[in-house]
């Protein structure tokens, strides 16, 4: 059904980037970035998960339905966390 075949080379490349990013996030955590450190760690984690999603999970080749609904799910979770901070952030 799915005509798209990803080569081992490409998948290996993605794995390489993922491992490098892991090293980077561990390395960055040793630096003292103060309040930024959590943000940096989350950006790296977000990039890593995007790579896993796009290539390992084939999201890049999926229909608009799956891509859109995935983003919606993440959006809902973000809204849940964000809106809770109307309380937690101002108490």
């Amino acid at each position: 059904m799915d005509p798209h075949i990803q080569s081992y080379k490409k998948l290996g490349g993605v794995l390489g980037v993922l491992l490098v990013l892991t090293a980077v996030t561990v390395g960055v955590s040793r630096l003292d970035l103060g309040s930024l450190s959590l943000g940096v760690a989350m950006v790296i984690a977000g990039t890593k998960s995007a790579l896993v999603l796009l290539f390992f999970m084939h999201l890049k080749y999926e229909s608009w339905l799956i891509r859109g609904s995935f983003l919606m799910t993440i959006g809902v979770l973000a809204l849940f966390i964000g809106f809770m901070f109307w309380d937690v952030g101002f108490r």
């Binding site: 996030t25 955590s29 970035l33 450190s37 760690a41 984690a45 890593k48 998960s49 896993v52 999970m57």
Partner: peptide, 18 residues
């Protein structure tokens, strides 16, 4: 992959937190 994905977030939030 999803299980992996969740770990990608658990790792910095618990082990790397500074």
């Amino acid at each position: 992959h999803l299980v992996d994905l969740i770990w990608i977030f658990i790792f910095p939030l618990f082990y790397l937190i500074l």
